[in-house]
Amino acid sequence: MTAAMQAVCALADIPDGGSRGIWPNARGQHQAFVVRQGGQVYGYVNNCPHYDRARLGWKKDAFLNGPGDRIMCASHGALFRITDGKCEIGPCIGQSLRPIAVRVREGHVFTEPPH
């Protein structure tokens, strides 16, 4: 684990199969988010590759499509693979979300800061 990593939430704070915004800025906007699948947690910068500075969610902690099998950008419906952030359909097809390093240790989720 690198020194820059910080605890962002407990694993139990993320519903299994769900998502959660992390790293709020001074205005309370989440700069990154994590998606949990069982014990595995994936983290990405909250920025759609389609528009500069476009955050993905449509509501606090809501970053997934209905079935919960893709990350969805609520701006124009782009769908990204949860495991590697690659856009499969949508305005940024072929591009990818920027991943952030995530570690789960003793029930806590640690990530590097969004960059």
Binding site: R55, L56, G57, W58, K59, A62, G66, M72, C73, A74, S75, H76, G77
Partner: peptide, 9 residues
């Protein structure tokens, strides 16, 4: 403008 679960602003 707001983002929405309908995949449109």
């Amino acid at each position: 403008y707001f983002s929405s679960p309908l995949g449109t602003h």
